[in-house]
Design a protein around this nucleic acid. Structure first.
Lengths: 301, 301
DNA sequence: AAATTGTTTTTTATCTTTAAAAAACTGAAA
DNA sequence: TTTCAGTTTTTTAAAGATAAAAAACAATTT
């Protein structure tokens, strides 16, 4: 019925924690573990009980201790730790990107549910989600229309992104000097330099830095609509990085330099410089996305 | 299980159509009626069959004709024509506006389902909807937090609204002279004048004009995110007009004049004038909303 | 042949159900 | 008296079930 992915994720993370301790050492209280693992104590108890059954922990009276170090076989496979929602979201994007559905086509919930081997309820929930992302449209008491990741989509998303990011960057520049964001910005810049030094090997780590930098800037907006909108961007990019690997190293190299210039402009608090560097970077990013979208259509023809 | 509100709405609308015809006159084809009533032919046939049972229409061979004019009793009561989704949406807003839930409080789906006498599924579906409206936030694998219609909410929504509406208004000014939007704008202006002439009696009709004017402007943006965002505004205003009746006539009088100035600026295509009139109006509107929000808190204290 | 009605199949909206997870309660121990 | 583990209750996530509505197909009339 309901998957126990929450339990399995907590189980695996608990094993990670235990791996850092010596056999014989005592475990912390159930409440502490619950807070650490971001689950309820009920779930922690289920985990502890399964770890006890596996002989990994043991109890003397009311306290528990590590009986043996966990091994690779004690972990649940990665695939089982994904919640139904995440699976549907991922498979839906894959389905879109593989061109199984063309812009303008109607979406068949029942068919998708079958294909993703889940219930129509789960599908429906995610259709409303993607509706809000501008990828779908609901026809009143009728089917859903797939609008597609098209050039229009990219243009529209970038129009908003530019408005929002420029506004947020200005707010960022106005942050008091002791704001935590400045420290985070410095840290992010340092990581840009580190990445550049080893670009040949680690270029694919750029996407995570990209997300962190832009999210940091957007958060300065203090506006829930700006922040929510970044979720749309973030999702598109998450998949974009996976679907288009052409020239990835070169693209990331350019983007890293643009980021560094943007970060410096932010630190200078010079609004004109910020606008210029931000616009330059977003224009490059838009071009890249448009090119990738163009390439999306090719294989299916 | 599933309510037949679609059928009942179609039934009532069909009666309205029939009321315009003489007894004995023939009905159009099922397909024609389906297109008119925005439902499937299946539903039209269900309606026709129930009208036949009620003796309102009759058939000679394969064609149908009006047997007697419909009366008030033939209609389904208004309340039964609302879909479950609409009911939940409405009751949820009422619940918020009555102050049954304070900002920061957790929302209990099961409790709401009980209170609204519907299922938790219907509630869940609407929570995701209101999440996207910035009124709620989902705590990861946990409950929903109500964020509230607060001054922050109004400030944030107006920050975006101003950005979007100024951008859209500029696009509007660039529309070719033969665009249908200009004709609609003229029509809307005329209706503003008509309303002003009878302001004492008809002031409450302003809200529909307001929606039409701003929607028209936003649609010129040709951007789905701008258009979707207007749905948020529209929903808030829909309820705002109901919850705060203080000085309604005076407020609407002022807004009508601001609208007319804004419309004239749009027609002049002078971007500076547009910006000025648009800003003026939005600032007034924001002030009004903030004042109403302030008054929301009073009764509960 | 095109349009229309009759019939069957498919899909959607929404309720119900239930395991998983969270929360609340309770008594024991530090 | 605060903190913990044990127990019970409540709530949520997600599947399953089914009437309503749509869509597809077939037969008939114009």
């Amino acid at each position: 019925m309901k998957s126990n992915a929450v339990f399995k994720r907590a189980h695996n993370r608990c094993l990670n924690m235990l791996a850092k301790h010596e056999p014989g050492s005592h475990l912390r209280s159930e409440l502490d573990l619950a807070l650490d693992l971001h689950v309820s104590r009920t779930t922690v108890r289920a985990v502890l009980s399964s770890l006890t059954d596996a002989g990994i922990i043991d109890r003397d009276g009311s306290r528990r201790h590590l009986a043996r170090p966990p091994t690779a076989e004690d972990y649940f496979p990665e695939a089982q730790t994904e919640s139904v929602g995440d699976v549907v979201g991922r498979r839906f994007m894959e389905w879109i990107l593989q061109g199984d559905c063309r812009p303008g086509e109607l979406i068949n919930c029942a068919e998708l549910a079958r294909q993703f081997s889940t219930s129509t309820s789960a599908i429906r929930e995610h259709l409303t989600h993607f509706n809000h992302f501008g990828l779908l449209e609901r026809r009143p008491n009728s089917a859903w229309v797939f609008k597609g990741i098209t050039a229009d989509f990219a243009m529209e998303i970038y129009e908003i992104r530019e408005m929002f990011e420029l506004r947020s960057a200005h707010r960022f520049a106005e942050l008091p000097p002791d704001a935590a964001a400045w420290a985070e910005l410095n840290l992010i810049e340092q990581q840009h330099h580190n990445l550049l030094e080893d670009i040949d090997e680690r270029y694919s780590e750029f996407s995570r830095l990209d997300e962190r930098l832009h999210r940091l800037v957007h958060d300065a907006s203090q506006n829930r609509f700006v922040q929510n909108f970044y979720d749309v961007i973030s999702m598109i990019f998450h998949y974009h990085y996976q679907w288009d690997k052409v020239d990835e190293k070169e693209r990331n190299y350019v983007a890293l330099h643009e980021h560094i210039a943007y970060i410096r402009a932010l630190r200078s608090r010079d609004l004109d410089a910020i606008d210029e560097k931000c616009r330059t970077h977003l224009q490059t990013a838009r071009k890249t996305l448009l090119k990738s979208i163009d390439s999306l259509r090719q294989p299916a023809n």
